Amino acid sequence: MTIVTTAELKAHSNLSDDEDDVLLDQKIAAAEGWCAGYIGASLVDLDPLPAGIREAILRIAADLYENREATLIGASGSTLPFGVTDLLGPHKVWSF
Results as ranks from 00 to 15, higher is better:
Gly83His: 05
Ala51Ile: 11
Ile39Ala: 08
Ala56Tyr: 02
His91Leu: 09
Trp94Val: 15
Ala70Gln: 09
Arg59Lys: 14
Trp94Phe: 15
Ile60Tyr: 05
Leu80Thr: 05
Arg59Ala: 07
Pro48Phe: 08
Asp63Asn: 13
Thr79Arg: 13
Gly89Ser: 14
Ile73Val: 15
Asp45Met: 12
Tyr65Phe: 15
Thr71Cys: 01
Ile60Cys: 11
Gly77Phe: 03
Thr85Ile: 12
Asp45His: 11
Gly77Glu: 07
Tyr38Phe: 15
Asp45Phe: 11
Asn67Gln: 09
Leu43Ser: 02
Lys92Asn: 07
Leu72Pro: 00
Leu49Thr: 03
Asp47Trp: 02
Ile57Met: 03
Glu69His: 10
Gly77Ser: 14
Gly40Trp: 02
Tyr38Gly: 02
Leu46Thr: 04
Lys92Thr: 14
Leu49Asn: 02
Leu43Ile: 01
Arg68Lys: 12
Val93His: 12
Ser78Gly: 15
Leu43Asn: 02
Ser76Phe: 05
Gly89Arg: 13
Val84Asp: 04
Val93Leu: 14
Ser95Val: 14
Leu88Thr: 14
Val84Ile: 08
Ile60Glu: 04
Asp63Ser: 15
Trp94Ala: 15
Glu69Gly: 15
Asn67Trp: 05
Arg54Glu: 10
Thr79Lys: 12
Gly89Leu: 11
Trp94Glu: 15
Arg59Gln: 09
Glu69Ser: 15
Leu87Gln: 01
Leu49Ala: 04
Tyr38Trp: 10
Pro90Gln: 09
Pro48Trp: 07
Ala61Ile: 05
Ala51Trp: 01
Val44Tyr: 13
Ile73Asn: 11
Pro48Val: 09
Ile53Met: 09
Ala62Pro: 01
Gly40Glu: 02
Pro81Phe: 01
Leu72Arg: 11
Thr79Tyr: 09
Ala56Pro: 02
